[in-house]
Nucleic acid binder design. Sequence first.
DNA 1: AAGGTGTACTATCTGACATAGTACACCTAT
DNA 2: ATAGGTGTACTATGTCAGATAGTACACCTT
Lengths: 126, 126
Amino acid sequence: MFRIDPLSRQPVYEQLIEQLEKLVLTGLLPADSQLPSVRSLSLELSINPNTIQKAYSDLDVRGIIYSVPGIGCFVAKNAAEILQAHMRRKLDQLRQLADDLALAGIPEEELIDSIHTVYQERGVHL
Amino acid sequence: MFRIDPLSRQPVYEQLIEQLEKLVLTGLLPADSQLPSVRSLSLELSINPNTIQKAYSDLDVRGIIYSVPGIGCFVAKNAAEILQAHMRRKLDQLRQLADDLALAGIPEEELIDSIHTVYQERGVHL
DNA sequence: AAGGTGTACTATCTGACATAGTACACCTAT
DNA sequence: ATAGGTGTACTATGTCAGATAGTACACCTT
């Protein structure tokens, strides 16, 4: 269900957060659906329970999920909305990247084509 | 000449590398021009000489600069070409980012507009 | 009562990053 | 020849984030 690379420069808990966020955005994890328990996910991914909890805690603080002690963690009602609003910050990263590529002399058309292709594939798969 | 943020998540030596690469790509550091000495740059930026040398060593290995012991470090002849070729890997990052934004429901037009704006500004400034 | 759940806490380990200090070989200018 | 600049190499130390290990508590369900 999850792909974790312990050798990545990106921390494990961040990898977990991003993949959970994508599951929410794609609708594979609808509102009020239960997340894997800290311990079960810990066993499945061979990751320390504390690392899982760190990811869940972060998502909880940001309102993406809510936790019921003794029961489990669940996807919040407006999780997708929060994520969509937050995703717009990635537009800044896109601009920064485009600026670097422009500086390197990569023609604008190449970027446009790449994006267009991505959006076409996304449209087909959904 | 350089802007270093010691508190950034990005290592200081990487910040230095990126800024040097941009100076090469913009032509502000032409081929065979001499780079600041390890010790002078160390004093100017209040950074340990070892950190500067780590950045220079990395650039040397990749063929961006060449060092002459006892003399100094200089920009390689084909530095800009190497960087341009290497920059295309950033297109992968761009695609990944576009895929995330597509997933979040950000319309394709917003990305296109952002990129177009970046390229227009770049065109003006150069 | 047993076993699952989230949560909290301390302790420890690891690796990357950065600093500090020293030393060597080389070249240039005086 | 001397002094001072250059790159380079090396060891030691400090710092911090990330991850692990272990324990413990409160809660709920069965």
